[in-house]
Amino acid sequence: MRKCRKCGQRAVVYMRQHRLALCKEHYIEWFIEQTARTIRKYRMFTKEDRVLVAVSGGKDSLALWDVLWQLGYQAHGLYIGLGIDGGIGYSDRSREAVETFARERNLHLIVEDVPTQYGEGIPEMARRTRRGRGKPCSVCGLVKRHIMNRVAREGGYTVLATGHNLDDEAAVLFGNVMTWQVGYLARQHPVLPARDGLVKKVKPFFRFYERETAAYALLRGIRYVYDECPFAQGAKSIYYKELLNKLEEERPGTKLQFFLGFLRAKEQGAFAPVQEEVDEELHACEVCGQPTTAPGRCAFCRLVTPGEPVSKPALIAPPLTTPSVVSETASETGARGTVT
């Protein structure tokens, strides 16, 4: 029987990669402390910042909001209703989970509902466009990035925080390495500074294994939506996560080393940004005012304004924003890092 390193009682969580066993109470304490350390170490934000947390109703984003609340940060939640049902009432249940969470803790929640505002949900939008061909995840990523940045700017938030964990980041990295997406490798980072109308983006959970965020949510009694977004089924990212977990089984710490090694290599100058992208200016979209690479209307406005098709140039516009944005729902299997 393993004992808690702090108090010697029966341990409930054992992290093989850290050789660390902890009881419930000390695991929760450890998890919160580690988050605080990561936030400080990577200069994500301070108590002065107004933080907007993107919450999907899944374990990671709710756990993040819970931790930031306990640490005393000014953190408001943003839930984006995507209009995804999938036969399981996915969006409705997610919204309910988030609203209940916020109510119980008396936290401020902003709800943006895509079908209400734009007349249709993500699946319908995806069906109309090239971008959505096959899977709506790319459209979904575009819409979420756009709304998150808009709400953050409108509300005067200085930082956008998402619940991405190490498994999310390692899977993205793995995918980008497998296909040598050099541009994406240059942009992948848990902290993306603000620029030209794009709000700073951070991932305070990027050092936690997915197993750890799930354990935290369970031990804290957070009621989150267990189900995947119906569109995430069979996603490559899930396949990569499973592969990485098999490696992790054989050699504990593999995932962590893979991702932290990548960050270290970047610091040493590997994966420098592509020069044209560094030089590229962002323009304000003529409709919504949000930053976009191509002059005129941004990809989001072209998507939601019927009549003009979402044209090819917008789709291949060099991605300058974050490689991946909202938390763990129907996110960005496709156009990682496309500017809105």
Binding site: A11, S237, I238, S331
Partner: peptide, 30 residues
């Protein structure tokens, strides 16, 4: 993650006759 009656249980615990252990999938997509 292994749970019994909604509570997380340690991995080094021994399973008993008649035990029902719910496994919570930790992998989410996207």
């Amino acid at each position: 993650l292994p749970t019994r009656d909604g509570e997380l249980i340690p991995e080094d615990e021994r399973v008993r006759d008649g035990d029902v252990i719910h496994l919570v999938a930790v992998i989410s997509g996207g």
